[in-house]
């Protein structure tokens, strides 16, 4: 299940199916808002999402992980709107009978979400300006 949330991500908020009795471990990853990026001080940021496509693409990634790793209990939640330093931007979790497929599925989910899900980040810098990350032609690398 892939979810978007305007509200803060609760650190104890994992779906019950991840603790199903046949699962022996949960691997989770949390992405936090950090106070710097590429040498610049960051004071807060905004995430903007193309909600309908983000939900479709996020759930497609989860389906791919189910096929690829044979893991059925997967979860990802991405925040949008205004976030302060230290807040959770994304939480990804994979639960499985054994640790190896849980680690692999969790890594796959975060990598593919970052690569494919239409969500954009605008950073507010300490010097008072704001910029969309990766939206300069010169920094996009073709």
């Amino acid at each position: 299940m892939f979810v978007l949330s305007k509200n803060p991500i609760n650190q104890s908020d994992l779906p019950a199916n991840l603790k199903a009795p046949n699962n022996g471990g949960i691997v989770s990853f949390e992405g936090l808002v950090r106070n710097h990026n590429e040498g610049r001080g960051v004071c807060s940021l905004e995430y903007e999402c193309f909600e309908e496509m983000a939900l479709r693409e996020g759930n497609e990634i989860i389906k791919e992980a189910v096929i690829k790793f044979g893991v059925t209990d997967l979860y990802a939640i991405h925040r949008y709107g205004h976030l302060e330093i230290g807040e959770v931007a994304i939480r990804v979790a994979a639960s499985a009978p054994h640790r190896q497929e849980a680690f692999l599925a969790c890594q796959f989910l975060i990598d593919e979400i970052k690569r494919r899900v239409p969500i954009w980040k605008k950073e507010h810098y300490v010097e008072g300006v704001s910029e969309w990350v990766a939206c300069h032609q010169s920094s996009c690398g073709g």
């Binding site: 931007a89 979400i113 239409p118 980040k121």
Partner: peptide, 10 residues
């Protein structure tokens, strides 16, 4: 149709 800027989620 949407022209999508480089995504930066996560």
């Amino acid at each position: 149709i949407v022209f999508l800027p480089p995504v930066a989620g996560g």
